[in-house]
């Protein structure tokens, strides 16, 4: 059975995504659960990058992981009921050794120079999609304004 390297890579990324989503279910600490959730979403975005769909990769990583994921991690860290360390500090030693070996091997190897990046988003930027993005941004601002108004009304009702 001849399996291409891209299929193997897809299988590996999908496997990591499923394992990290399983870790979300199994871990008891919300902080670690949110970290594993972010890892799952990065893997999902990685599959988009594997199929050369960089604009969606950027959207998922920036909006979902970069904005919502970080807010979720911050909330989980704030409302952490029983702060306990699930990972031993001793794991730092193999991590440092691996990072050193990796850094040194990259330093001594003659890597090819990077070529100019061809940004693929250009062909997607049409007036229709710009209008769509504008409307959706307006929708999110409206949603946030309504939540803000609800909070202000509750404050006024209390005082």
């Amino acid at each position: 059975m001849n399996i291409e390297i891209e299929t193997l890579l897809l299988l590996a990324i999908a496997g990591v995504a499923v394992l990290s989503s399983l870790a979300v279910l199994l871990t008891r600490d919300n902080f670690y659960a949110s970290m594993f959730m972010s890892a799952t979403l990065v893997m999902v975005a990685g599959i988009y990058a594997l199929f050369n769909l960089q604009p969606v990769f950027v959207l998922i990583v920036f909006i979902f992981v970069g904005a919502l994921g970080i807010v979720t991690i911050a909330l989980a860290a704030t409302y952490r009921f029983a702060p306990e360390r699930q990972i031993s500090v001793l794991w730092a030693l193999p991590v440092i050794i691996t990072a050193f070996i990796l850094g040194y091997s990259v330093h001594i190897s003659n890597l090819a120079s990077l070529e100019k990046i061809q940004f693929a988003l250009q062909k997607f930027i049409t007036p229709e999609y710009l209008l769509l993005i504008l409307f959706l941004t307006a929708l999110i601002i409206l949603l946030m304004l309504s939540v803000l108004k609800m909070g202000i009304e509750k404050e006024e009702g209390r005082s």
Binding site: I60, I63, F64, L68, L132, I133, L136, L139, I140, L143
Partner: peptide, 10 residues
């Protein structure tokens, strides 16, 4: 994908 990402984020 854009619609899904924006609405789910909202």
């Amino acid at each position: 994908a854009i619609i899904t990402i924006f609405t789910s984020s909202g």
